[in-house]
């Protein structure tokens, strides 16, 4: 795994936006290919016939009003919905061409490859070190104590948290600030070396400074990971993502380069939403 050195100069946010628009024109291979996906809670259909191709090593943002199904859709990509009783999925989700709902796919193994960061930071009530080491331990990913320590450090560096916590790795994770906790959750997810990272409104509970840290981190991480981020904040989508998908009432209304979505959307609904006429 490549380390993102936290000392690397971070481009200004204005620079981010311009980079995104340049990058968006380049054809990139598809990482996650969803075809005709519908999702049911009991009899209620929460997602209707969603098809989308999520490009590799880019940031794809899902936007839409609350209850539009964007979080539900995100959770179908690592089968987190499986733990809720009474849900049903139809359609196919291919990751690297392999159907994750196929009979031979094991959801537990899948979740190692498709990591997730939640809306509210949810560190385990253990030490900082143990939080990051947990995924490595249960999956048997570190052969020795030194390897474990190395990989914990690598992950914390990748999540731009190492410098802040390196002297107190055995302190409780719950003592960290909200923004630090969320970066710890990102480090924890990165430790098991996923290829895809799903982020469910990762900054919605954070203050502006902490939010900026997370956004900068997302920008760095896309060098190595395919990132899908759900956000209710359209400015955030505009700042961090290469492509944006707009969901409304369980349907994917429009999916395009972020620059185009916010300047010249095709659908009337998208235009109304991004210009703040509803939502």
């Amino acid at each position: 795994m490549t380390t993102v050195d936290s000392d690397t100069a971070i481009p200004s946010l204005a620079g981010v936006a311009s980079l995104v628009s340049e990058r968006g024109t380049v054809e990139t291979p598809t990482k996650v290919d969803v075809r005709g996906l519908s999702f049911y809670y009991g009899d209620m259909r929460a997602l209707e016939d969603v098809s989308i191709q999520i490009p590799e090593k880019q940031v794809t943002a899902f936007i839409g009003p609350s209850g539009c199904g964007k979080s539900t859709f995100l959770r179908t990509l690592n089968r987190m919905n499986d733990i809720i009783p009474g849900v049903r999925v139809t359609g196919t989700v291919l990751i690297d061409g392999k159907d994750i709902y196929g009979a031979s796919t094991d959801p537990v193994t899948l979740r190692q490859h498709v990591g997730m960061v939640f809306q509210k930071s949810n560190p385990f009530p253990k030490s900082i070190f143990e939080n990051v080491a947990y995924g490595l331990r249960i999956n048997g990913l570190a052969a020795s104590k030194t390897e474990l320590a190395d990989r914990v450090e690598t992950s914390l560096r990748a999540a731009a948290l190492w410098d802040e916590v390196k002297d107190r790795l055995s302190a409780s994770a719950l003592a960290l600030s909200g923004g630090q906790q969320q970066r710890l959750c990102i480090a924890r997810a990165l430790a098991v070396e996923p290829e895809v990272l799903l982020m469910d409104e990762p900054a919605s509970a954070l203050d502006p400074i902490a939010t900026q840290h997370i956004e900068e981190l997302v920008f760095q991480l896309k060098t190595n990971y395919t990132i899908v981020i759900v956000t209710h904040n359209m400015q955030q989508a505009a700042r961090v993502s290469d492509r944006t998908a707009f969901f409304w009432l369980g349907k994917l209304i429009e999916f395009d380069l972020t620059s185009r979505m916010f300047t010249a959307p095709t659908a009337k609904l998208t235009e109304d939403y991004v210009t703040g006429r509803f939502g």
């Binding site: 987190m80 537990v108 939640f118 949810n122 385990f124 995924g135 249960i138 924890r188």
Partner: peptide
């Protein structure tokens, strides 16, 4: 949220219960 966090890292049900739920 604790259970979700564990599942999302590729833990099985029993690993989640044994390592995260029971200690709490």
């Amino acid at each position: 949220a604790l259970r979700e966090a564990s599942y999302a890292l590729g833990a099985t049900k029993w690993q989640t219960i044994w390592h995260q739920v029971l200690p709490v």
